[in-house]
Design a protein around this nucleic acid. Sequence first.
DNA 1: TAGATTGTTAATCGATTAACAATC
DNA 2: TAGATTGTTAATCGATTAACAATC
Lengths: 210, 210
Amino acid sequence: MMKEQNISSSVIKRLPRYYRFLGELKKQGISRISSGELASRMKLTASQIRQDLNCFGGFGQQGYGYNVEMLYDKIADILGINIPTKAIMMGVGKLGTVVAENMDFNKLGFNLIGAFDIDPNVVGKQVASIKVSHLDELKKFCKTNKPDAAFICLPDAAVKETAQKLTELGITGFWNFSHHDIALEHPEVAVENVHFSDTLMRLSFKIKNS
Amino acid sequence: MMKEQNISSSVIKRLPRYYRFLGELKKQGISRISSGELASRMKLTASQIRQDLNCFGGFGQQGYGYNVEMLYDKIADILGINIPTKAIMMGVGKLGTVVAENMDFNKLGFNLIGAFDIDPNVVGKQVASIKVSHLDELKKFCKTNKPDAAFICLPDAAVKETAQKLTELGITGFWNFSHHDIALEHPEVAVENVHFSDTLMRLSFKIKNS
DNA sequence: TAGATTGTTAATCGATTAACAATC
DNA sequence: TAGATTGTTAATCGATTAACAATC
């Protein structure tokens, strides 16, 4: 399905947005779109859209444009949404709970199969129809269920050690809500950071410099 | 304090990370650091660090390097952390509540002064020591208190209309947790998106392509 | 067929890295 | 002073945009 070349991170970053816009077009019953029309809706250039899509294959047709539904499905494939990634939640405090219970993981290509904490007030409780286990169960759980991804909603101080443990247990992707820089120590795994405070500081900068 | 030139968004994106690392160094009691040493800790090049910092002024000293505390303070200034931005929370559901109650806004240059919702179960309740007001109060509140930033924790469908209203009431910065693309309709204001699902889809892509 | 729009190559632009003179 | 390290210019690299032949 994919050309054998490295996709630049600039392109990867734009894929979810394409997916979102195409989903919207689909919902609106639009079946066909040209790169020019899509570009004007997304405030991009038509060139960029065609270049981006052509990293993965020639999905369009000269003189016609792109079939919305087909392109939507292709991007879902590219993003790997149709092959669920098994994931575990590490840390089920307030943030971990909100994340676990409010994301539609299935629609995003994930399957949340476990949750871990050390707080006795949290261990045993039900979150997103999963029973929270004690961290002591982690090793056994991973051997049995072989999760691929971990969602890190732990206090900063606990992340370093936990990330080390998780990579040793075969985790290959981290969705990281903490400030700890997992990628520094584990360059071999995939890391996506959700740094609330970084975005907020950038907003502060932008507001004060405009 | 700042050179009169446009700072590229690549540089802006890195600033909070510099700030974080310098804070860490400060905590560790390290008072002096060279661009080379900092680069190796952050996995950047020394050149990039020196180029980035020189957008804002010559903070270093030849033969010595940078004074950690001084540089930390300078970056805080650059980010505008010392001049609190007045902000309001729009939408006090589960996500809005967690965000409001768990961020240390003061340390990040913000002052949360109001919160709005339409749900009668939420209006009137206390969140992060702020009483949640009904959306009907928004106009009056903004005229009186002149907030600069709005944190958007609303359902996607409500965002378009609310963002329109907010810009008319003088809001110049949005911290956006919804999927709605505020920047498209309001190119004049600052927008920082926290798109949970975008980062998750990117993670899916990376896991499946490594 | 004629018109439209892609896929793709070439040109431009911007960001990163390297190099080095200035200087503490 | 000699050594270290910056600030800054120049070279390289990569990403974006423009152009256009291919083709539906």
